[in-house]
């Protein structure tokens, strides 16, 4: 079970962000569109979306997908839906 220093540091960061109750990836996906739109609108994180923010902090895969979604939405806003 060899872990590199980078992997150990990543684990410590994960542990620092860990909560007793977390959304899983499927639950996060169901809410991430609403979260992305509210973030792009510059709104503060609504109570029902705080769990999404927390999940994105501990789940690299959902975070990667969220960032791509965000890129797509920003680009759509700048170029219009039909570019």
């Amino acid at each position: 079970m060899p872990l590199s220093p980078t992997e150990l540091a990543k684990l410590l960061e994960l542990l620092a962000q860990t909560q007793n109750h977390e959304l899983n990836c499927e639950q996060c996906l169901a809410l991430v569109a609403e979260f992305a739109e509210s973030q792009l609108a510059g709104q503060s994180v609504a109570a029902n979306l705080q769990a999404v923010q927390q999940h994105l902090a501990v789940c690299g895969e959902c975070r990667e997908e969220y960032e791509a979604l965000r890129e797509a939405l920003i680009s759509m806003r700048e170029n219009g839906p039909d570019e």
Binding site: L29, L31, V32, A33, E34, A36, E37, E65, Y66, A68, L69, A72, L73, P81
Partner: peptide
């Protein structure tokens, strides 16, 4: 709770 296309795009990213 979001634009339909935003929701569909989130599924597509997954």
């Amino acid at each position: 709770r979001s634009q339909f296309t935003t929701w569909a795009t989130a599924l597509a990213m997954r």
